[in-house]
């Protein structure tokens, strides 16, 4: 009996949270087009989210390209298909691995950061103070952050993809004696718009999801300082799950429109 009540309570709270999040995102879309626009804050958040994440994304992307090529080489060599390496790595990184891995890293860095920052502001009643003073904390804190993640993440992913391809090209050049020009020629030969456009569109949704969940968890933080950690942690967990759900939907939709 107690168990069924617990499940009922949990499912209720789960759906309540989804509903709250939907309302939260609805409010975002309402606020984003209404004046005044907080450009300065948007710029600051873009710098924090974009520029400050570039090193992490770059290092991760470079290692991703290196490792992916090193791991795939022996298998392709067994089939005598080493010449397919640039095509395979290019398509894999641009279409799927690059966006998902970089989005997960950003979920860890940016999502948790936003959750903790807004959570602490909520706990220290800074948000309440802004409301009392007549400012719109949602517009200033939430809209700018969600917009920044939505705009910056696709750029981070593109840069991460390019760095990963460079990493892969270095390994191919060292191990397979493939020139950089030949490598990138083969990569661009293999790629098509149906690989790049869906991946870019998908990364916009990834950025939106990271900003939305992080802001939601931080903005609705409670239970004092414990809640801040919880908000930060749950922001990463929820975002990671949501990223895979979005990825699945994106692949499904891409399959319908582009016939992968």
């Amino acid at each position: 009996m107690a168990k069924s009540t617990s499940i009922k309570t949990r499912s209720e709270s789960f759906f309540t949270e989804i509903g709250d999040m939907a309302l939260f995102s609805g409010r975002f879309f309402k606020e984003v087009f209404s004046q005044p626009f907080e450009f300065k804050e948007l710029l600051r958040q873009s710098y924090n989210i974009g520029n400050r994440s570039l090193l992490l994304v770059g290092v991760t992307g470079f290692i991703l390209g290196l490792v992916f090529t090193l791991q795939s080489r022996p298998t392709l060599m067994e089939f005598g298909a080493e010449s397919w390496m640039p095509s395979m790595v290019g398509i894999s990184i641009v279409r799927e691995i690059g966006p998902v891995i970089i989005a997960l890293i950003c979920a860890g860095r940016i999502g948790s950061g936003i959750g903790a920052e807004l959570g602490s502001m909520r706990v220290t009643e800074q948000i309440d103070a802004m409301e009392v003073s007549g400012n719109n904390p949602f517009k200033y804190l939430v809209v700018t952050r969600i917009l920044a993640t939505t705009l910056m993440l696709p750029l981070l992913i593109i840069m991460g993809d390019v760095i990963a391809l460079f990493g892969s090209a270095i390994i191919e050049n060292l191990k397979g004696h493939v020139s950089y020009m030949l490598y990138f020629n083969q990569v661009f030969d293999a790629l098509s718009f149906s690989d790049i456009i869906p991946a870019t569109v998908k990364s916009v949704f990834f950025g939106f999801a990271i900003g939305l969940v992080g802001c939601y968890k931080g903005y609705n933080c409670s239970k004092g300082t414990v809640g801040v950690g919880e908000a930060s942690n749950s922001a990463v967990v929820y975002t990671s799950m949501l990223l895979f759900v979005i990825d699945f939907i994106a692949v499904f939709v891409t399959d319908i429109f582009f016939e992968i």
Partner: peptide, 22 residues
Amino acid sequence: VGLFVVIGTVLLIAILYFVGMR
């Protein structure tokens, strides 16, 4: 941020251009 956006956008356009050329 401007530099970051420009680099990202240029890279995206370059990739699209090379793929389109192919």
